[in-house]
Nucleic acid binder design. Structure first.
Lengths: 236, 236
DNA sequence: ACATTAACTTGATCCTCATCATTGTGCCGG
DNA sequence: CCGGCACAATGATGAGGATCAAGTTAATGT
């Protein structure tokens, strides 16, 4: 399955900057360090599964994770992309319910696990951490609501352009300044946009024909970000 | 505009049970009580407007409030329905950004305003309150993600059925046990479902023909909840 | 290297649903 | 009481996009 080991210190963690956990008071952070377990997941492996009960939260150390709902008909809807420093699995934990989404590694990833009891107790006593958590969740909620609006009002073409920009914003680009720094299948892109795989493919080809992007296998190069933004028709 | 006055005590507030504020420690609650201002909004009046900066949060005392995004083309998308005891406007406040949604009274409503500085300072020191806040926001986020999935995967018919059940769950029914306890225009229902007004009207007529509901002006009676649930095709 | 499967691509078709247009109904002020 | 207006209902039409089908390329294992 996956290799698990204790990480000596969060201070060595690649993702220590930008991680919410570093908003915690020092003593609490040390407590977390002592208890957390770091695991390696290979591309495609499941970190946690929709329907299961949570035993703690996860903090992405390296790699990329997708969080996706499984629709009734089995089609997946990607609701979030997590990068190093992000925590995942907090919603289920906070509401003490089952996971409503699965977390799957897009790349090989290393993810820290923090046991439920510990995290909850730290959260209860560490106002700074819980305040920061709140801000993060609130910001996710904002994004989700915008997405709801766009899903019901914007055509697929605009949403795809928007998604490309979102991917760039999340995972960045390679050293050339153009190539998206993640390899997603066409199906995954479609599930991110909320459309059929064929539609996503077709529109990507159009974008390519229009000189907005360049395609080379799973590599996507955003050649003309301005024009993509215009295509996305964003005004908020 | 609207009548504003200091409410002597939250303890007299109709919405005191079920309100998150009562998770706050007593001394903090008293502080809030002293500072909050209660206002009356008539049906259709705006509590806060998308794009404006927040000066505090609002707690619904009586009445019903809709929270809606305005899409780029001007069409609104209702992202939330608030009832007595609910707090609104917290996302913008927490992230210190502009409102991304407007809050508008569906009914005549009385809403308490709690100034930003006070609320934030209480939040910082009251772990119990901020923990509860977190849970509420996390739960909203869950709902939003499910909605995203359904928007991209379910047909309008199912989503309308789902919305009717959601309205019932949120505002309940009148004493007859069937009539939804809120008057929404067809357009508002459509904006909740995420579809065109005409489509919502058409499907409501179908539901009526199929004996699922009864229509009488803006009154909607859910005659056969089981069958509506089946129509919504929920399995999660 | 080859076989086998998975992922991608393109084309054709169908259907849901948005849009436009028109008529009908309730509601309020004059 | 009646015009005026907003909202509701219904019909006609077309476009966007899902689905099905078939062919192509890339990836994977043996």
């Amino acid at each position: 399955m996956c290799t698990a080991f204790h990480n000596a210190s969060c201070l060595n963690c690649q993702a220590r900057f930008g991680s919410i956990l570093f908003k915690a008071e020092k003593c609490n952070l040390e407590e977390i360090e002592a208890a957390k377990v770091c695991s390696i997941y290979k591309k495609g492996q499941v970190v946690f599964q929709e329907g299961a009960y949570p035993f703690g939260i996860y903090c992405v150390n390296t790699g990329k994770i997708k969080l996706s709902h499984c629709g009734d008909d089995g089609r997946e809807q990607i609701v979030r992309l997590a990068k190093p420093g992000d925590i995942i699995g907090y919603k289920a934990l906070l509401s003490a319910e089952r996971y409503t989404a699965s977390a799957i590694a897009i790349d090989d990833a290393s993810v820290c696990f923090i046991p439920k009891d510990l995290f909850m107790s730290v959260l209860q006593k560490d106002a700074s951490l819980s305040f920061e958590m709140m801000r993060i969740i609130a910001s996710e909620l904002r994004k989700a609501e915008v997405k709801i609006t766009h899903l019901s009002q914007k055509p697929v073409r605009e949403r795809l352009a928007e998604t490309l920009l979102f991917i760039k914003e999340t995972y960045g680009v390679e050293s050339d300044g153009f190539t998206l720094n993640v390899r997603l299948s066409r199906e995954e892109i479609a599930n991110l946009v909320g459309t059929a795989t064929e539609s996503a493919i077709r529109l990507l080809s159009e974008f390519k024909k229009d000189g907005l992007i360049e395609l080379q296998g799973k590599k996507i190069r955003l050649l003309n970000t301005d024009e993509i933004t215009r295509t996305a028709n964003l005004q908020d």
